[in-house]
Computed example of a mutant assay.
Amino acid sequence: MANDTLDIALVQTALVWENPKANRVHIENKVSSIKADLIVLPEMFTTGFTMNATEVAEPMHGETITWLKQLSKKEQAAIIGSLVVVENKKYYNRLICVDPSGEILHYDKRHTFTLAGEHKVYEAGKKKVLFTYKGWKICPLVCYDLRFPVWARNTEDYDILIYVANWPKVRIAAWDTLLKARAIENMAYCIGVNRIGLDGNNYEYSGHSAAYDVLGNRVDNIPKNKETIEIVTLEKNHIAKYREKLGFLKDRDRFSLEA
């Protein structure tokens, strides 16, 4: 049975550099007892955007995944966010989605950020992943993926596109513009959750987390550079109404992707 509405909590927060335990405690305190169907955390929410994978990587049965499962069950909400994962001696910037039943899905960041040398440390993902939660089809992506519209193209009729990020203040205008564009071109809700504060490399992050409807209108009131959680309510009828009325997705180009 599909929910007519979905309440999503956008967690815009600072992160403690390369300290998974401190970040888990901080995040758990922030989300404790909020009422939402889905909680969205930033990219690399346990460490910040680090290239020091050998020191901070965790296996899929590690402390953070165990904690995510426990927190999801406690809050009765699905949770998504990315962290550094080691698997078969390779490192991944891996987005994890866990639901209250304990089911886990993951997506490995497709577009590693070459400007920061991410491609030298982390394996790039090869597969786009969608998951369905409470009847909503969701496409989760990570930060730099936002710059590549072909990868996000809505050929699967998903309802929500979600980006988790550590997107720096110096290029925040691109973040603002592209989030809105992705909503409009894919006729889907588009949500972006970005961190705030300084990281261990002294890069500054200014938030600008946001949620857009299928017409590119903001449906949130999140302050730009402040630690906050905002819950936005998405409506299935909104998607159906404008896809039927405008029909833009019916004219989309057909193509296949090569990894």
Rank of each mutant, 00 (worst) to 15 (best):
Asp213Ala: 13
Pro168Met: 10
Thr155Gln: 14
Ala210Glu: 11
Ile191Cys: 06
Leu178Arg: 11
Gly216Ser: 14
Tyr203Lys: 03
Ile162Arg: 03
Tyr205Cys: 06
Asn202Ala: 12
Val164Met: 08
Ala165Val: 01
Asn202Ile: 02
Leu198Trp: 10
Glu123Cys: 00
Gly216Asp: 15
Phe148Gln: 04
Ala173Gln: 14
Arg182Thr: 01
Val170Ser: 12
Asp213His: 11
Arg171Val: 11
Glu204Leu: 07
Arg218Asp: 11
Tyr163Ala: 04
Val214Tyr: 12
Ala174Glu: 15
Thr132Glu: 15
Ala181Lys: 14
Ala183Phe: 08
Ala188Asp: 08
Val129Gln: 12
Trp167Asn: 05
Lys127Ser: 14
Glu156Gln: 14
Arg195Leu: 10
Ala173Asn: 14
Lys134Gly: 04
Lys137Ala: 04
Pro149Trp: 09
Ala211Met: 06
Val164Arg: 05
Glu185Lys: 05
Ala124Gly: 13
Ile196Cys: 12
Glu156Met: 10
Gly207Cys: 04
Ile160Gln: 06
Asn217Lys: 13
Asn217Ser: 15
Pro149Thr: 01
Val150Glu: 15
Arg195Asn: 08
Lys169Ser: 15
Tyr205Pro: 04
Phe131Tyr: 14
Asn186Phe: 07
Ser209His: 09
Val142Thr: 12
Tyr122Met: 03
Val219Ala: 10
Ala165Cys: 12
Val219Met: 13
Val121Leu: 13
Lys128Trp: 08
Asp159Thr: 00
Glu123His: 02
Glu185Phe: 08
Leu215Ser: 09
Tyr163Asp: 02
Trp167Val: 01
